[in-house]
Amino acid sequence: MWAQQVAFWIIAVAMGLSAIGVVRSRNVVHAALFLVVVLAGSAAIYILLLAEFVAWVQVLVYIGAIVVLFLFGIMLTRAPMRDDAGKLDNDQRLASGVVSLFLFGVLTVFLIDAFSDQKIRFTDSLVAQGSARAVGSDIFHQYVIPFEVVSMLLLAALVGAVVLARRD
């Protein structure tokens, strides 16, 4: 229990600082690399929550595929690779900072009010629950129709991306 708390705080501080880096960095490539830290941190959080399969899917899909897509997008839009103040942000920084701080305050107050008595009890059955066997069996028994719908959505997104990006 003690080791889990220490691990959580290390991961959470790294994720929080990197999330601020994603939205405040003055260099587009640095923002993408900060995003990698946030995504890897949430994979570590999933491991901490004993959700092993979701953690590895997170590493494969997010860090392996989505970040590479982002880096391609940065290269193809010829974003300035050097530090470029002022160009990456618009002039709503102050207002949106106030709004998101207010949102965070409200969310924190309500979360503490609602869930402060709930604790996660880690048991041995939770390890089996996070395995690929349990998650896969749940997908293919109970959630098979949403699974098929999501695969159709991926096909539609594939065709749509090709149609949008084609040059003719």
Partner: peptide, 29 residues
Amino acid sequence: MPINYFLILSAFLFCAGAYGVVARRNSVL
């Protein structure tokens, strides 16, 4: 372990993302 730790971390990430959506000008960001 209190479930609130994870929920507040997630709320923080959400608010950082909301800030970025509004305040960023570059579309990739």
